[in-house]
Amino acid sequence: MFDLTGKNALVTGASGGIGGAIAKALHAAGASVALSGTREAPLQELAAELGERAHVVPANLSDADAVAALPKAAAEAMGSVDVLVNNAGITRDNLFMRMSDDEWQQVLDVNLTSVFRLSRGVLRGMMKARWGRIVNITSVVGTTGNPGQGNYAAAKAGLVGMSKSLAYEVASRGITVNCVAPGFIATAMTDKLNDEQKGKILTQIPAGAMGAPDDIAAAVTYLASPAAGYVTGATLHVNGGMSMV
């Protein structure tokens, strides 16, 4: 339905459940993909599964030099970066009173600052091409807050404000900047929860189930496609009705 033939997409955090699903969906829509992440083995595995039009560009987003080099590495592998999906994220949960400066800073560095730097890094090419898509993966907790996630929620809410500001600046150049805000998505991260925790979560979700990585990938594919050219500065909430904003 959404055609990305000839477009080149860089996906961060592609070794994770949601990032992998996003990369697969963009690839299935015809895009070339550059898969980034810290662990190279799962990236290589995914690239092998995808076959042609898949490239591996590992990067540790907590390392500023690695962040600066990533857009260039992706452009060299694919010829350009037309679509940037900032999906990578980490958590360092702790109650506010117990949260260390380090826990705060690590989450802000990877989840917010690296997105600023990567976006800045791909903009020149997008400006020249008069076409570009930046999709930032935020979270329902950026809107609702969540105990134990002051750092994570701050970074995710920060992404929304940053995306809107950038969306203003580059809208006249055919570049859109949007967010996708997942609710609870079944991944390796949520597998760790026990049945009681899961049950509690489900009572808050009108849809009665956790989402799947493919639910997020579909939203990203839409926003990355030419079909969403008039959508910018928006946040698409994909949360089974958990938070209707």
Binding site: R124, M127, E169, V170, S172, R173
Partner: peptide, 11 residues
């Protein structure tokens, strides 16, 4: 030119 044009020109 708008402000973004001037940035693009410099680039």
């Amino acid at each position: 030119a708008d402000s973004l044009d001037t940035v693009e020109l410099v680039m």
